[in-house]
Simulated scan of single mutants.
Amino acid sequence: MVSKAGEEFDLKLKFPEDYHAENLAGQDVVFTVKLHKVNELKLPELNDEFAAKCGPFTEMKEVKADIKRELTAQKEREADEKFKDALVGELTEKSKAALPELLVEDQLRSIERDLTQNLMYSGLSLDSYLKTQGFKDKEEWVKKEARPAAEKRVKAGLVLAELSKELKIDASRDEIQEQINFFKQQYGKDKKMLEQFDNPNVHRDIANRMITDKTVAKLVELNTKK
């Protein structure tokens, strides 16, 4: 086992099949490594002194209680989101709403843009993703994965919009302005980002998002009453 500074050793590795450089994807490689420094990780003792460094705590039991609260809250949020998704999904399945192709195409572009951006952050390309997921080309991916997802999004949006009308749910001008002010505070002094909130289209998008959220909340309420 290598454990001293100055030692050299070889690492036999294999590039991932979806590696962004196609000439290296799936290839075996040997890296010669020289160890310059060895650090040992020492875990701190979980005592009251350590607790004081973690925040406004005086005892370790307070830290453990705080961690438990955070984990419980996280699990509750996850359960709430799954419940919301299930309700919207069930409502969407029962709907016979016609899907405007223009909206579906718009969602397709959004899905491809988001996926491409996320892959780029990982050093991957859309082509490599298609290959690792077993799609022979982009057309097959659109048909089997992207289009069904886009149609589901559009259908859910139409159903919730219709439900909001049925339940007479709306967003007041004050509510919209309050949300805009909140976003502006989040962006601080970023002038370019702040300017977008003067755009009426952005106001409309914010209003629609608020109405959708309020509609989903009402849907949850109607399905949890005893």
Rank of each mutant, 00 (worst) to 15 (best):
K143D: 05
K64S: 15
P200T: 07
F15K: 02
K155S: 01
V2G: 11
V63D: 06
F15L: 05
K218P: 07
L160Q: 03
E166T: 15
A52Y: 06
D170W: 05
D190T: 07
T92V: 02
D18T: 09
N201D: 14
V33R: 01
M1G: 11
V63L: 08
L219V: 08
K189M: 06
Q185P: 08
E140C: 03
K226L: 10
E221V: 12
P200W: 10
L194Y: 05
T32A: 13
Y129M: 01
R204V: 08
E139Q: 00
F197N: 07
E175N: 10
I176D: 10
K192R: 13
M1N: 09
N201A: 12
F197H: 05
N199S: 13
C54G: 12
L130E: 00
T212C: 07
L126S: 03
K37D: 14
L71N: 12
D28A: 12
P56I: 04
K64I: 15
N118S: 11
D48L: 12
L103P: 00
Q27R: 10
A146S: 04
Y129T: 00
D213N: 14
R204M: 10
G123M: 03
G6W: 03
R77T: 11
K4L: 13
R109H: 03
F31R: 07
I176G: 05
E162Y: 06
K144G: 03
L219G: 08
K14G: 07
K189G: 06
L71I: 15
E166Q: 15
L126V: 04
A150F: 07
L219W: 04
L71F: 13
K165D: 15
L219E: 07
K143Y: 06
A156D: 03
N47C: 13
Q133K: 11
L41Q: 14
G157I: 02
H203A: 09
F9N: 01
R77W: 06
A171L: 10
N199G: 13
L194T: 05
D48C: 12
L194P: 07
L35E: 12
L102Y: 01
E139F: 01
S3C: 04
G134D: 00
A65R: 13
K131I: 00
V159L: 00
G134L: 00
S128C: 06
D106W: 00
L167S: 09
S3R: 06
H203D: 08
T92D: 05
S128D: 08
I111D: 05
R173Q: 15
K131L: 03
L102N: 04
K34L: 08
T72V: 12
F15C: 06
V142S: 06
E81V: 06
R173N: 15
M1S: 11
E178P: 09
R173L: 14
L158Y: 01
K75R: 15
S128G: 07
I67A: 11
N199L: 10
Q117G: 02
E7F: 02
E175C: 10
A21K: 11
L35I: 13
L43M: 12
L71A: 14
L91I: 07
Y121M: 13
E90V: 10
D106N: 03
C54T: 14
A79V: 13
I211R: 08
K155L: 02
P100S: 05
H36E: 14
V33Y: 03
L222T: 11
Q196W: 04
E139C: 00
R147H: 02
D137W: 01
K37Y: 07
